[in-house]
């Protein structure tokens, strides 16, 4: 238990992804229909709904973030905007607004536990959930892409800050950091 172990978490800045924000009343059938029309599914609160067409992340009771291949984003956003014309909804492509990071390795949970005030212990945070919180001093959202892997997004302007903070946190662990 007490012996000193060192493990390294891999932090990788990912290339820009496709992202679309949808603001709508998520309880309303119109929103469910709009997603269904483009092959997407409505997530439950704080969950990510996965389909072949893309992932839909629950951001707030009236906001979704759609994650798709970058080359599809503009067309998908345009298609959605057209489909919901006349409805009280807002569709905006936001692919450029955020930076994405992959954090992977056996100590990925501990890396984020140094920066985020969130219970990231196994069983408490697992794939399928999205959590918006802060990474040190900036807003972020994070979710798990596998048993030891996270994806994290933050605003583009603070990407360097987030990358440095993540890399600083990713270098050193010991048995004292079990969650």
């Amino acid at each position: 238990m007490a012996e000193h172990t060192v493990a390294i978490t891999r932090v990788e800045r990912l290339p820009q992804g496709g992202m679309i924000t949808l603001r709508a009343d998520l309880e309303a059938q119109e929103a469910v229909d709009l997603l269904g029309m483009v092959g997407l599914a409505m997530p439950e609160m704080r969950r990510i709904a996965d389909t072949e067409a893309g992932q839909v992340a629950w951001m707030s009771p009236d906001e979704l973030l759609i994650l798709c291949p970058p080359e599809r984003a503009a067309a998908l956003a345009a298609q959605m905007a057209e489909a919901c014309a006349g409805e009280h909804m807002l569709v905006a492509e936001v692919s450029d607004a955020r930076a994405r990071f992959a954090i992977a390795g056996p100590t990925s949970r501990q890396t984020l536990a140094k920066l985020c005030p969130v219970d990231l212990a196994p069983g408490r945070f697992e794939p399928g959930e999205i959590r918006r919180t802060r990474l040190a001093q900036v807003a972020c959202a994070l979710w798990m892409t596998g048993p030891e892997a996270f994806e994290l997004i933050c605003f583009r302007s603070v990407a360097d800050y987030a990358e440095t903070a993540l890399n600083t946190a990713a270098t050193q662990f010991d048995a004292g950091m079990s969650l």
Partner: peptide
């Protein structure tokens, strides 16, 4: 904590 040197506080950068 980690808040020193280059990450003392967030530095926002334009494209």
């Amino acid at each position: 904590g980690e808040a020193r040197g280059p990450i003392f506080q967030p530095l926002r950068k334009t494209p």
